[in-house]
Amino acid sequence: MRKIVSLGVLFALVLVAAASLPAAYPDRPVKLIVPWAAGGDTDNIFRPFAPGLQKALGATVVIANVGGASGTVGAREAKNSPPDGYTLYAVHDYIHSTYYTGVSDVKYSDFEPVCLLSSTPSVLTASPKTKWTSWQELLADAKARPGQISVGATLGSTSHFFPALIEKAAGIKFKYVSYEGLAPRMNAILGGHIDLTDSNLTQKGKVDAGQLRFLAIATEKRSPEIPSVPTLKELGLNVVFSVERGLMVPKGTAGDVIAKLDAACAQASKEPAFAESMKKQGTEVRYLDRKAYAEYQKKLDDLNRELAKDLGLLKR
């Protein structure tokens, strides 16, 4: 009897010891929180990225779409996850803009940066039910009917900031309607329920099919994918805008875990399959390591606060 008891105790001790030993990271699957519905543009970028990351990391990467409230629901969930490297968070500039516009209470500094991954330039897109074929026609119409042209946007997020910057640069006024995420905006713009929206090159197919109109792209130079679309700079508006997407982990994650993730990220961003799928989506693969990304984030944060202030949306 005693033997059995002592054996049991020994067994329990071994179990506890085994549990408390830090196993080599990662020893189980990793969850990647995408704070938007699947099928949106953020999801479209991180889904093709996940297999590469999985390979480089040596652990399964499971994407969890946690959408809602301009991406805030997912941000909160990521923030409250244990900082053990098993929860990653796919982020873009909205983390800054929603914070300053008062939509969200989560700040970028609640997380540790891992790497920057991609950059997607914004394109001003018009519904086929509108009569504008060029920016000039839109401008004239907007001047004639201030506050009447409806723009579908995720409020307080990048798709709100981009048209707001145009508004400011051109001295016009739009009317904003909440359409969260690119997919619902496309539904609405194809049906003519909104006039304008921010989109990107992923929608090129619909433009070619005559279902949508690209009016202007917010890059420095014209994009080789759509050479006929002028840049906003050419049109005399000093607006250059793109959405930068990267990975973060909750604050307090161990440095060596982040380093490991960053290394995996660097390797995965070089996968040819990933590059191919990004090219199709008009997105530039733009890897920055954790240090450079941290600095860049700080810059982006200041920029977004400035923007929010300029646009009269600053709430903090």
């Binding site: 809602g68 409230a69 909160r76 409250n80 939509v103 409020l155």
Partner: peptide
């Protein structure tokens, strides 16, 4: 669903996600 304002959550983190 529009602005992410917590509603009827009684301050609970769990209810905030809906």
């Amino acid at each position: 669903p529009i602005m992410g304002v917590p509603r009827l959550t009684l301050g609970s983190e769990f209810l905030q996600g809906g």
